[in-house]
Design a protein around this nucleic acid. Structure first.
Length: 775
DNA sequence: GTAGGGTTAGTG
DNA sequence: CACTAACCCTAC
């Protein structure tokens, strides 16, 4: 909201509580109630708290109820008086109370309180004459983590209350603190019109409404503590006061979204659409077209209180269901809907805000087209008739936005995407151009976006940034994934992988594509960019399932002693067999159960020890990978680790045209924190010469992105090993690799082969065909 | 051409 | 209204 509105609200919140002194408020700028500051998904507790007058729900501190109760029980007699003083025009006073209140409410620590005040000084707008800006500076309180994902490393800054809560002017007593229900926290939250913690953070300017609401509450509220209806009355007063405009719809108590049962969980208030808003919306759609919600909502000529573009979209769907995508397509005769029965909110002045799909007679085919049970139609139809639209000056059908039709990615698309990625790497336009994949109608960014979602882990591993929300709780599926992948004993002293014992994978792991069957194994084996920095994981580490990496010194001994062997790995003929690998080098190339762990005690164990190991599964990483990796010529020369061209597919799949780009893609991978051991990106490792880090570096988990050290001298990591071992099982040769990185890769590839041979069914990523072709 | 991030469609 | 994913914009 613009500053002027804030000013108005400020005036409105004038401390005297005298309505008469209030400047006239444009009704359009009065919010009946606090916006629904539903939890913004990206909110980081504490981060935005200094952002000025933006307010945050008070109810975010449910846990504090007990401490509050304790303190307030002692100080309740005093606090109200102070607050009364505060409310009485003394601009200097507010701090007095607010300080104490925040101490009471948020943190017993005076230190924090003092910090709070300091912050206040920075964020509180200059005092306006006759105003009390304290009402504008309600703190935004940290929100509880909505999900129990991982806690941030940096603890959220606890923000205290800047200002006292609005209290009933009569009693000037805090409401009874008797627990959740009817207690202080809840009632206070209600009084200030705050919503549940889950309320999203609204636009900053729009949250400036809050002070005004508080002021309204202050003006109207009466002492209602302890009364079940008090809250409603308060709300009534608030709303009727705030919404005394003809155009303004009044939110009735029953519409407040209050949990009727009065349970502790505060539900969100509904922010009903006013006629004016609806009219603006329709006019906006008429102006900008359907789908340009952002433009509409930001259009200065319209006033959508606290609403977001999504809100507009939902509202429009309610008002003009036949104008929206599917129904519009279904009903080619779009106009009929406008003529259908509508009693409309324009006339009633009271309307629901809920975006109710019009499964009424208006759009029967839409309702019937869905297998779902149609939602019960509501009596107060929201749809706008043509006449009503005409009244708004909307004569013509709404224009559509130019947005392309949304087309879901099918499983086949995902498979092709994966194949394309393996073939071309993250060169999306090439994947798009490849007729085999059927992505002609897609944009390259579509493919990227899809890949980013579908194969997030791989995407991140390739060095690209995931969308913040997309950082899938890697650990969330980690365990289950490990449970799903069951590795049977492998007789490693075979010369061919074909004799490897199949592993069994739970059907669940392959059936559910939603669970990234690619990324899951990766999570087992590879640390995510975040996981690499275990310290960033923060407290979650406490419950971290990841085992520490335990390296055997033998690995490094071998590595240090055999740097010259790197080139030899280029040749499959010189590669040791599995037995050789394990036997000769004393390496246990199967990771521990977590895919990260090599038990030193097992390192020297003969092959049989592998039977106890759980492979780090990297299903999708295997054979196809060569395609992507092979964009670096496999036989490029002695310094390149050429994975033996295994199957016919590798050659055929190679896209020479994309070599350059693919290589660059590899090379441009940023310095992702990766632990070389056991993590060596297969895509790069296979074809890349890696300079081995020093053992100390390995142990310290220092990042060593092998992709950035292509063709450097030193030991070749992984590549030949992985390729020779798993991909090219005919040879059944393994390029011995240094350290666990290779070994890990071997393990993964073994699993892949095993999966393949074990008849585990269609690879979730459609690799089966490639696998078959390459073997 | 692409990476990053914003916006919108669709669903529950 | 939350949430996800498809789609889009734009700086590079």
């Amino acid at each position: 909201m613009e500053p002027r509105i804030a000013t108005l609200l400020l005036g409105d919140s004038s401390p005297s509580g005298s309505i008469s002194t209030l400047p006239p408020l444009p009704n359009s700028q009065l919010r009946p109630l606090l916006p629904a500051p539903a939890t913004h998904r990206n909110d980081i507790p504490g981060v935005e708290n200094l952002a000025g007058p933006r307010l945050r729900p008070i109810s975010v501190r449910p846990k504090s109820s007990v401490p509050i109760a304790e303190v307030l029980n002692q100080e309740a007699p005093a606090a109200p008086q102070q607050f009364a003083t505060t409310v009485s025009h003394n601009p200097a006073q507010p701090q007095l109370f607010s300080g104490r209140l925040q101490d009471i409410l948020l943190d017993p620590s005076q230190e924090r309180a003092s910090k709070r005040r300091k912050v206040d000084g920075q964020t509180t707008p200059p005092a306006l004459p006759g105003s009390e800006n304290n009402l504008l500076t309600l703190p935004k309180l940290p929100q509880l983590p909505k999900k129990t994902s991982r806690r941030p490393r940096i603890p959220p800054l606890l923000q205290g209350l800047h200002q006292p809560p609005p209290l009933p002017p009569e009693g000037r007593l805090f409401p009874p603190i008797t627990g959740e229900r009817g207690g202080f926290s809840k009632e206070l939250g209600d009084r200030v019109g705050l919503r549940s913690p889950a309320a999203p953070a609204r636009n900053k300017e729009k949250e400036d409404h809050i002070p005004g609401e508080i002021a309204v509450v202050l003006r109207n509220s009466v002492s209602q503590r302890g009364e079940g209806k008090g809250k409603d009355r308060l709300v009534d007063a608030t709303f009727y006061e705030a919404a005394n405009e003809p155009n303004k719809e009044i939110q009735r108590p029953g519409d407040t979204g209050e949990n009727s049962s009065g349970k502790g969980k505060t539900t969100k208030r509904r922010n009903k659409w006013t006629n004016q808003e609806t009219q603006d919306l329709l006019r906006g759609v008429s102006m900008f077209g359907i789908g340009n919600w952002k433009k509409i909502v930001n259009h200065p000529g319209f006033d959508f209180h606290q609403r977001t573009a999504v809100d507009l979209k939902d509202r429009f769907r309610t008002c003009c269901p036949d104008e929206t995508g599917k129904s519009r397509q279904i009903n080619s005769q779009t106009t009929h809907s406008r003529d259908s029965n509508n009693d409309l909110t324009l006339a009633t002045g009271l309307q629901g805000d809920e975006a109710t799909p019009a499964t009424t007679s208006v759009a029967p085919d839409e309702a019937s087209s869905k297998p779902k049970k149609p939602r019960k139609s509501r009596s107060d139809k929201q749809e706008k008739s043509t006449e009503q639209l005409a009244e708004m000056g909307i004569q013509e059908p709404f224009a559509r936005s130019k947005r392309r039709q949304r087309v879901e990615f099918t499983e086949k698309d995902d498979e092709n995407l994966w194949k394309g990625y393996k073939q071309y790497g993250p060169v999306w336009h090439l994947i798009k151009e490849d007729a085999n994949f059927g992505f002609r109608h897609r944009h390259p960014t579509d493919l990227r976006d899809r890949f980013r979602i579908r194969y997030a882990e791989e995407y991140a591993k390739a060095g690209y940034k995931l969308k913040t929300k997309n950082t899938p709780g890697p650990r969330a599926n980690e365990e289950s994934n490990q449970e799903n992948f069951e590795v049977a004993p492998v007789t490693a002293n075979k010369n061919t992988l074909q004799e490897a014992t199949p592993i069994h994978i739970n059907s669940s792991s392959t059936s559910n594509l939603k669970v990234h069957t690619l990324s899951q194994p990766l999570r087992n084996s590879f640390p995510t960019p975040y996981e690499d920095f275990s310290d960033i994981i923060s407290e979650d580490d406490g419950e971290n399932r990841k085992s520490p990496i335990t390296l055997s010194r033998h690995i490094f001994q071998w590595a240090d002693a055999n740097p010259s062997q790197a080139p030899s790995m280029a040749s499959a003929s010189t590669m040791p067999t599995i037995a050789n690998l394990t036997g000769d080098f004393g390496m246990h190339f199967l990771t521990g159960a977590d895919g990260m762990h090599i038990d030193p005690q097992e390192l020297r164990l003969p092959v049989a020890s592998m039977q106890q190991g759980v492979f780090s599964v990297l299903p999708a990483y295997t054979p196809n990978q060569q395609h992507f990796g092979s964009t670096i010529p496999m036989n490029a020369g002695p310094t390149t680790v050429p994975a033996p061209a295994p199957g016919p597919s590798s050659g055929s799949m190679m896209a020479s045209a994309s070599n350059k780009q693919s290589v660059s893609s590899l090379l441009r991978t940023p310095n992702l924190p990766t632990i070389v051991y056991p993590h060596v990106p297969m895509s790069s490792a296979r074809n890349t010469m890696h300079k081995l880090p020093r053992p100390a570096d390995l142990l310290s988990g220092v990042d060593h992105d092998s992709r950035q050290e292509v063709q450097t001298t030193g030991l070749a990591l992984d590549d030949g090993l992985a390729m020779g071992f798993s991909l090219h099982s005919h040879n059944a040769t393994l390029a011995p690799l240094v350290g666990g990185a290779n070994m890990n890769g071997v393990g993964r590839n073994l699993v892949m082969l095993d999966r393949e041979r074990g008849g585990l069914g269609e690879d979730a990523f459609g690799e089966r065909s490639l696998l078959n072709s390459s073997i």
